[in-house]
Design a protein around this nucleic acid. Structure first.
Lengths: 124, 124
DNA sequence: ATATAATGTAGAGTAAACTCTATGTCAAGA
DNA sequence: TCTTGACATAGAGTTTACTCTACATTATAT
């Protein structure tokens, strides 16, 4: 089974324009049925993974490289994994930093809470 | 003690253009000494906090609102805290999602590792 | 006195990732 | 037959957050 761009837009949650843009950037390569695009079942999982890469801060350019390796098939399996391992590292560091920021934000909020309590002190 | 824009650029690690842009957006309001900007010691800490808000995904527009409350002084203390509490929530969710993504990335990498081991199997 | 360096302003340019517009083709329903 | 709706392409426009250019002014060093 395959999907027209309209159907594919619905199942992936990405706009038609965005999908065409992704195709233009060679992230996806739909088949054609007399000029009309046909997206496969497999493309759905692939879009889901693209979304994940994006959500974790991978730029389109980088995803493009990954897509190119994917298109090479098993020949580029190790290179693809290499990229994912790299990205995992990046993601790890990202999480670590955000946790650090969170801790300091917590401190700041606690401080403000003290300040505000001070204000209410003179209302017995 | 205060800083010229060049000095301030050095101590904050932000470019001069960026600092002027931040001023234009009313994130910072330096004093003037005969037309030249003078940034205070306090501005250094403020820039550090701006960087933190940015690093945790707060857009400039939002930081602008926070800056406006900050300019109102203690009168807006609770509103400022409100914003920070909101942002902490956002940050929490962000970290949670990234951890989820990380877990799935780990799975994918483990799967690839299996695949690659399979390839090496026929080289005894 | 003049060249250099650091400021200033105003506005243009850039990069990323969409998002939309204009225009055209084509099949199916009233 | 006519019109609506989904699809197509090519290219323009948008948003965010800078970043840079052009040109003017001022202070400092030689």
């Amino acid at each position: 089974m395959d999907y027209s761009i309209g159907e594919f837009s619905k199942v992936t949650g990405l706009g038609i324009h965005t999908l065409r843009y992704y195709e233009h950037e060679s992230l996806i390569i739909p088949l054609r049925n007399a000029s009309n695009r046909r997206h496969s079942e497999r493309d759905i999982a692939w879009i889901a993974f693209i979304k994940r890469l994006k959500a974790t801060g991978m730029p389109i350019k980088e995803i493009k490289k990954y897509a190119a390796l994917r298109a090479k098939g098993d020949a580029a399996l190790s290179e693809r994994m290499e990229m994912l391992v790299q990205h995992r590292q990046f993601l790890n560091e990202q999480i670590r930093q955000l946790q650090e920021h969170e801790a300091i934000l917590d401190e700041k909020i606690a401080f403000y809470q003290q300040e505000l309590k001070g204000c209410r002190e003179d209302v017995p």
